[in-house]
């Protein structure tokens, strides 16, 4: 619905993309990467709910579909263009004022660690209106609070069409929580993110 606003440059510059996904999230992230430019430049952070206590293998899996550098960030690692970051399992992933990752082992929030809400909130505090948040498939309501936060700070929110989501509770909760900018299929989310990247290079 806001396509014109976007392409006319209402959001002038996007400096970070954060994505929240849960059940069915890995497949959707793969689809997203398949539809993004292989050398996508805007740093992108995926917060994916995973089983704790084991090495996830998720970065290796995703790396097959992109030329971005896919990695689990370490604490205080700087955020850089051309990187796709995956939140390490069993840690909260936050972003500090100087645009570095900050990990936390604080208690799970609403049973989630990493918590999408916490990642969204801290990203919004640092990136303000230069942030895009995406909520994809998932079986809980994590991310809804965070979406509200992103909107409060002037960021842009894309939500996967609940009809397309493997599990629709998470997109639905996000849509109910705030006036999100667009509710679209994953392929269109990729398209939109590509568009933002053109602004990023300009």
């Amino acid at each position: 619905m806001n396509q014109q606003e976007c392409s006319s440059g209402l959001i002038k510059q996007v400096e970070l993309v954060v994505i929240g996904a849960s059940s069915g999230g890995l497949d959707v992230l793969i689809t997203l990467l398949q539809h993004l430019p292989r050398h996508y430049q805007i740093p992108t952070v995926a917060v994916l709910h995973q089983r704790p206590n084991r090495s996830s293998g998720v970065p290796e899996m995703l790396a097959k579909y992109t030329h971005m550098k896919v990695q689990e960030p370490e604490d205080k690692q700087g955020i850089e263009a051309g990187n796709f970051y995956v939140a390490p399992p069993n840690y909260h992933l936050l972003i500090d004022n100087d645009r570095v990752f900050s990990l936390s082992l604080d208690a799970p929030l609403n049973f989630c660690r990493p918590s999408i809400d916490m990642a969204f909130e801290s990203a919004a505090e640092v990136y303000g209106d230069k942030l895009v948040g995406c909520v994809l498939t998932g079986a809980n309501s994590d991310g809804a609070e965070g979406v509200r936060y992103i909107k409060r700070y002037g960021g842009h929110v894309l939500v996967q069409d609940p009809a397309q989501a493997t599990v629709d509770s998470m997109p639905r909760a996000a849509i109910a929580a705030a006036e999100v900018d667009e509710i679209i299929k994953i392929e269109q989310i990729a398209e939109r993110l590509s568009l933002f990247a053109e602004g990023h290079q300009a």
Partner: peptide, 9 residues
């Protein structure tokens, strides 16, 4: 202290 986690605490 890291502000991101401190503020949340």
């Amino acid at each position: 202290y890291s502000r991101a986690s401190l503020r949340r605490r």
